[in-house]
Design a protein around this nucleic acid. Sequence first.
DNA 1: GTCTATAGATAGATAGAC
DNA 2: GTCTATCTATCTATAGAC
Lengths: 194, 194
Amino acid sequence: MTGTTDIRATILAAALAIVRKQGLGALTQPRVAKASGVSQSHLTYYFPTRADLVRAVLEAAVAGQIANLGSAMASRDSQEARLAGLAAALSNAENTRILVSIVLAADADPAYRELYNRLVTAMRQRAELMLRTGGLEPTAEQVMLLHALGTGLAVMGAALGPQTGRAVSTTVLRELFRLLARDAGQRTPPDETT
Amino acid sequence: MTGTTDIRATILAAALAIVRKQGLGALTQPRVAKASGVSQSHLTYYFPTRADLVRAVLEAAVAGQIANLGSAMASRDSQEARLAGLAAALSNAENTRILVSIVLAADADPAYRELYNRLVTAMRQRAELMLRTGGLEPTAEQVMLLHALGTGLAVMGAALGPQTGRAVSTTVLRELFRLLARDAGQRTPPDETT
DNA sequence: GTCTATAGATAGATAGAC
DNA sequence: GTCTATCTATCTATAGAC
């Protein structure tokens, strides 16, 4: 586990980059082999079948998404800044390709549902934290709502392109936060300090 | 345009069925040819390249989704019934495969964005109508919010499976409608008539 | 562990007869 | 319009040498 040059990790990184840039459909053995600098048969030495590779890549992808969630939108700043940060993160096409890849895998094979659930759980925790940082005391339903909305905005952003996607995300998220704040009985100051 | 046996339509129907059941990745010329009962080369007579076929299928798919939106959730009934109808529609994996296919196409080739936009526009009109039927006077932002949420719930449903997907959709939609009703200043009676 | 070579399957596309 | 046949490219997987 320690002495090896960790070719396995190199392969996984190359494979992950391919999925992030071109989606799950582009994940083929020849491409990954070339990108990681090993022969194709060597790749199958580490990942005997394509399914093994896909599984390992998506596992790594989920772990990566979860780990990177923290840095994406560091907590303090204004509410408006947090909202913009979230909108920007949701407009990241590469992250969305990972998300969609997992959805495709889970749709084609229910064995991947558990993996998707892992991601959902982490995302919801993140969503809850964000709402709390904004001074709210969200219910479980509201956390699920924000998470589902984020999923939709991310997918839309992939189809609309970053500019339009970001605009839609910002508008929609602002409206949700307004509704949540109003429900909580706490007026959100319209931030007219500029 | 009139005298032909409309093999073209037969081919498109078969191709659409494949996308609905197995996703865009399963849309291959041999499969479509077999399913529609024509030879593969005959298929290419109507659709010279695979790109032509994909384009035609997605165009037809969007037209179909838009046309079927009306029947999916006919307006009157209780608010709770409308909500359940929407949740059920969002949990239809086949519809979601169409949606995801268009997103994948638009992500890979911006030329498909216009097609996606057509779908979004129709869905938003439907969303607005539903909110109005529920007695609300939604703003454009609120319509966008409901649409984006529906997109996210549909995608989640594809990954989670119909049972879980439907449960999540119902819970989340109920919460959004509650927030919207509260914002509008009109209490929604909890429907305790049963 | 790492490679070359290749088998076997499937996909996209074209040629050409009818 | 419709077909058979085929070419080429690409992919998954395996065999076997080093």
